[in-house]
Computed example of a mutant assay.
Amino acid sequence: MSLVTAKQLPLVASPLPEEALDAVHQLETRAHSHPWSRSLLESGLSRYHCWGIQTNEQWIGFAIVSVVVGEAELLDFVVSPDYQGQGVGGCFMDWLLEQVATLADRFYLEVRASNAPAIALYQNAGFVEVGLRPDYYPAAKGREDAVLMAMELFAAS
């Protein structure tokens, strides 16, 4: 599906094919301090619902979502550092919510407590903080808390 950001960046969102693994792995390693391994990403692409976003036929972001008994969990959400701050994440998240709403009634995620831009993105999308997971993430100096966020989903009728 074609999308356009507020800055008129043309985007195409779609299911993520397994052939995109190399691009996904590159995005993951560039975007996260503690990235998923290539084998974990490969497993994720085959086991979960995966969507990506492109511009000019180049993958610039992806999402991996687990869905079980009406509840979805955002396992990984990445936008290339080259495209952060340009509305890509918000545009992709809005589209993603439409997809997930057809599969689940509730949507959960964890985010590093220090990741203020991601927390703002999720809050703008409608997620609310529902808890804290102490020492959840590995960090440069020990462990870091995760903010647990959730939202109720409503499929368009």
Score class of each variant (00 low, 15 high):
Ala101Glu: 00
Val24Ile: 10
Gly90Gln: 12
Leu74Val: 09
Glu71Pro: 05
Ala72Glu: 00
Ser39His: 13
Leu75Lys: 04
Glu144Ser: 07
Gly90Ala: 11
Glu28Ala: 01
Gly44Asn: 06
Ser37Tyr: 09
Ser80Cys: 08
Asp94His: 15
Val65Phe: 03
Glu28Cys: 01
Val69Tyr: 14
Glu152Arg: 15
Val12Lys: 13
Ser43Trp: 09
Thr102Trp: 07
Cys91Trp: 13
Arg30Cys: 06
Tyr108Lys: 12
Ser114Met: 10
Gly52Gln: 13
Asn115Val: 14
Ala146Ile: 06
Pro15Lys: 07
Gln123Ser: 04
Ser39Val: 11
Arg133Ile: 03
Val69Pro: 14
Gln26Asp: 13
Leu9His: 10
Tyr83Asp: 00
Leu27Phe: 00
Arg112Met: 02
Arg112His: 02
Ala13Asn: 10
Val12Ala: 04
Asp145Ile: 05
Lys7Met: 08
Leu9Ala: 06
Asp22Glu: 15
Ser2Gln: 14
Ala104Met: 03
Leu74Ser: 07
Val130Gln: 00
Ser37Ala: 09
Ser114Trp: 08
Gly89Thr: 06
Thr102Phe: 05
Tyr83Leu: 08
Gly90Thr: 11
Gln99Tyr: 08
Ala23Gln: 11
Gln58Ile: 07
Gly52His: 09
Lys141Ala: 11
Ala120Leu: 08
Val147Ser: 00
Asn56Lys: 15
Glu152Pro: 11
Asp145Gln: 07
Arg106Phe: 10
Asp22Met: 03
Asp94Trp: 13
Asp22Gly: 10
Leu75Gln: 04
Leu103Lys: 15
Leu74Thr: 03
Leu27Gln: 01
Asn115Ala: 12
Gly90His: 07
Leu148Ala: 13
Asn115Asp: 06
Val130Ala: 02
His25Phe: 04
Pro15Phe: 04
Glu98Thr: 15
Ala6Phe: 06
Glu73Val: 14
Glu28Lys: 01
Leu75Asn: 02
Met93His: 13
Trp59Cys: 03
Arg133Thr: 01
Ala113Met: 07
Asp76Phe: 04
Leu21His: 10
Glu110Asp: 01
Gln58Thr: 12
Ala118Ile: 02
Ala104Lys: 02
Leu121Cys: 01
Ser46Ile: 08
Ser37Val: 03
Gln86Val: 08
Leu74Pro: 02
Pro10Asn: 07
Glu57Met: 05
Val79Lys: 09
Gly61Met: 04
Asp82Val: 10
Thr29Arg: 15
Tyr108Gln: 05
Ala120Asp: 07
Ser14Lys: 15
